[in-house]
Computed example of a mutant assay.
Amino acid sequence: MEATERRRVAADRVRTAEAAVAQLKKGLAGVGVTLPSLRVDPVSCAGNEPAPLIDLGRCNIDTALRLCEVLAEKESGHDE
C-alpha cells in the first residue's frame, strides 16, 4: 500500500471514530445521559497507521447511576 493510500485509510478510520462519538453522544443525550469526556482518544490516532479508540471518559457517580438506570430500563423492556 502506498503512503498516500495509507494516509487515506488512516483518515477514514479517524472519521469513523469521530462519527461513532457523535452517534454515542446523541444516543446517550436522548436517554438523559451525558458523558462530558466522551471523545476520540488522540493518542490512539497518532502514527502512520492509527487505531482510534473511543474514550468514554470519566463521569461522576450520578451519571454512572443514570447510565445504570437507563440500561436496566432497556433490559427490562420498560423503555418502549
Results as ranks from 00 to 15, higher is better:
Lys26Thr: 11
Thr34Ser: 08
Ala20Arg: 14
Ala29Trp: 02
Val43Arg: 12
Gly27Pro: 03
Leu38Ser: 11
Gln23Gly: 12
Ala51Thr: 08
Leu38Met: 13
Ala22Phe: 07
Leu24Asn: 03
Ala20Lys: 09
Ala22Ile: 02
Thr34Pro: 02
Ala51Asp: 15
Ala20Ile: 00
Lys25Cys: 07
Ala51Leu: 14
Ala22Met: 11
Asn48Pro: 13
Leu38Ile: 03
Lys25Trp: 08
Pro52Gln: 05
Thr16Gly: 11
Ala46Asn: 09
Pro36Glu: 14
Ala17His: 01
Arg39Glu: 13
Leu24Trp: 09
Ala51Arg: 15
Cys45Ser: 10
Ser44Arg: 05
Ser37Thr: 01
Ala19Leu: 15
Gly32Asn: 02
Ala46Phe: 02
Val40Arg: 03
Gln23Trp: 10
Arg15Gln: 14
Ala19Cys: 11
Val31Glu: 07
Ala20Glu: 15
Asp41Trp: 10
Pro50Lys: 03
Lys26Tyr: 03
Gly32Cys: 01
Arg15Phe: 07
Ser37Lys: 15
Val33Gln: 01
Arg15Met: 13
Thr16Arg: 13
Asn48Arg: 12
Arg39Gln: 14
Ala29Ser: 11
Glu49Asp: 15
Ala29Cys: 01
Cys45Gly: 08
Asn48Ser: 12
Gly27Ser: 11
Val31Ala: 09
Arg39Trp: 06
Gly47Thr: 00
Thr16Glu: 15
Leu53Gln: 10
Ala46Tyr: 01
Pro36Cys: 08
Arg39Tyr: 08
Leu53Asp: 03
Glu49Tyr: 12
Ala51Cys: 07
Glu49Met: 05
Arg39Thr: 05
Asp41His: 12
Glu18His: 07
Val21Asn: 10
Leu35Asp: 06
Ser44Ala: 10
Thr34Asn: 09
Leu35His: 07
Leu24Glu: 02
Gly32His: 01
Leu28Thr: 01
Ser37Asn: 14
Ser44Pro: 04
Ala29Arg: 08
Ala19Pro: 05
Val43Pro: 01
Leu38Pro: 08
Ala19His: 14
Arg15Ile: 00
Val43Trp: 07
Leu35Trp: 06
Thr16Leu: 12
Asp41Thr: 10
Val40Gly: 05
Ala17Cys: 05
Gly30Asn: 03
Lys25Glu: 15
Glu18Arg: 07
Gly27Thr: 03
Gly47Phe: 02
Gly32Thr: 01
Pro36Ile: 01
Ala19Thr: 04
Asp41Pro: 11
Lys26Pro: 00
Gly47Trp: 01
Gly32Met: 00
Leu53Arg: 13
Cys45Val: 14
Val31Asp: 07
Pro36Phe: 14
Arg39Leu: 06
Leu28Phe: 10
Pro42Val: 08
Thr34Leu: 10
Pro36Asp: 13
Ala19Lys: 13
Ala17Asp: 04
Pro50Met: 04
Pro42Gln: 06
Arg39Phe: 06
Arg15Trp: 11
Cys45Arg: 09
Gly27Trp: 02
Leu35Glu: 04
Val21Asp: 10
Leu24Ile: 00
Gln23Arg: 15
Pro36Met: 14
Ala20Ser: 12
Val40Tyr: 03
Pro52Met: 04
Arg15Asn: 11
Pro42Ile: 08
Gln23Thr: 14
Ala22Thr: 14
Lys26Phe: 03
Glu18Cys: 06
Arg15Lys: 12
Ala29Tyr: 05
Ser44Asn: 07
Asn48Cys: 01
Arg39Val: 02
Arg39Cys: 11
Ser44Gly: 04
Ser37Cys: 14
Gly30Ile: 00
Thr16His: 11
Gln23Ala: 15
Ala17Lys: 02
Val21Ala: 08
Val33Met: 03
Arg15Ala: 15
Leu28Arg: 03
Val33His: 03
Gly27His: 06
Leu53Ser: 09
